[in-house]
């Protein structure tokens, strides 16, 4: 399902102040695409996700699912979207895992056999099979999160919205989520939007990344492009330090120092131009940036 976000703005008003959560956001997400939305706390990620699934009405602009405006077709949107917003809080504590799956399955119009088959499949996949009949209030946070994810998946949604899906998950479960997301996007043509701070998840998904800051989209690129762009700007230098020779650049990120030899990273191209002809420059190579470094660079406006 194609998602079009056009000029989306949203503010929260209280008696004392107005907080602008989204400012003129424009995005197009194609069917089968996985998009990671990143940003600091309060950047507007959850507001964006809630606007897409129709849980929040924007002040201006609109979200379109296959050309239909979400807030004029709420039942259409709710029928096709699944969202895990606060995983561990999205389930009934006094019901067992299976009862939760059955309850939401019935409300989503699934038949008994379909519920049983899907529940068995996903409970096995997320290693919850033996906890099927345990009330979820006895679950760990990660297990509750898994139950919430299974509920979202059982609906077989065309748009899947996940707010911090791997929060509290062990590595194996996190990998299972990643595998399922890839499968849903590639085989099923589902559009998947994830807000996360999980570097491992972002790295493994290798998806499109939308960076948000103060309610605005500040960068929208695929992870490989961001890595390439970042690598073009950043270099690892091995330099022999001598009295009277060039000093380390102001942004030098020192990695190693032995005697008069220093290994560091820099993105200061003017400094590099000055030392390129110097005999003190032992080695220079392009850096590969980690997701965390890319995030910091984008959010500080250096990428």
């Amino acid at each position: 399902m194609n998602i079009e976000i056009r000029n989306l703005s949203k503010s929260y008003k209280s008696r004392t102040k107005t907080t602008q959560a989204l400012r003129d956001v424009n995005l197009t997400i194609k069917s089968g695409e996985i998009v990671c939305v990143l940003g600091h706390n309060g950047a507007g990620k959850t507001t964006l996700v809630k606007s897409i699934c129709g849980l929040l009405r924007p002040d201006q602009g609109a979200v379109y699912l296959d050309g239909r405006a979400v807030h004029e077709n709420l039942s259409f949107a709710h029928g096709r979207c699944s969202a895990v917003l606060e995983g561990s809080r999205n389930i009934y504590y006094y019901l067992t895992a299976y009862e939760n799956l059955r309850y939401f399955g019935l409300l989503n119009g699934l038949g008994h056999r379909e519920i049983d088959e899907k529940a068995a499949h996903y409970l096995r996949l997320f290693a919850l099979e033996q906890f099927r009949d345990v009330p979820v209030n006895a679950f760990s946070r990660g297990m509750q999160q898994k139950t919430a994810i299974i509920i979202a998946l059982m609906k077989d949604p065309e748009v899947l919205l996940l707010d911090e899906p791997t929060l509290g998950l062990d590595i194996l479960s996190s990998d299972a989520v990643i595998e399922i997301l890839h499968q849903l996007a590639s085989d099923g043509g589902r559009s998947i939007i994830i807000t996360t701070h999980d570097v491992h998840l972002i790295e493994r998904l290798n998806a499109r990344m939308v960076f948000m800051n103060q309610g605005q989209v500040v960068r929208d690129s695929r992870l490989p492009e961001l890595k390439r762009d970042g690598a073009d700007r950043r270099y690892q230098i091995t330099l022999q330090l001598r009295p009277g020779g060039p000093e380390l650049p102001a942004d030098a990120d020192l990695r190693e120092r032995q005697g008069d030899m220093a290994v560091f990273e820099t993105a200061d191209c003017r400094w590099l131009e000055q030392v390129l002809a110097s005999e003190q420059l032992i080695q220079i190579e392009k850096c590969s940036q980690s997701v965390a470094e890319i995030y910091k660079a984008v959010m500080s406006g250096h990428a």
Partner: peptide, 18 residues
């Protein structure tokens, strides 16, 4: 309070019906 209202609203059943 439980945080389940959002999930309930996201189902294919209208809130008034459930």
């Amino acid at each position: 309070q439980q945080g389940t209202l959002e999930q309930l609203l996201m189902t294919r059943t209208p809130l008034s019906a459930s």
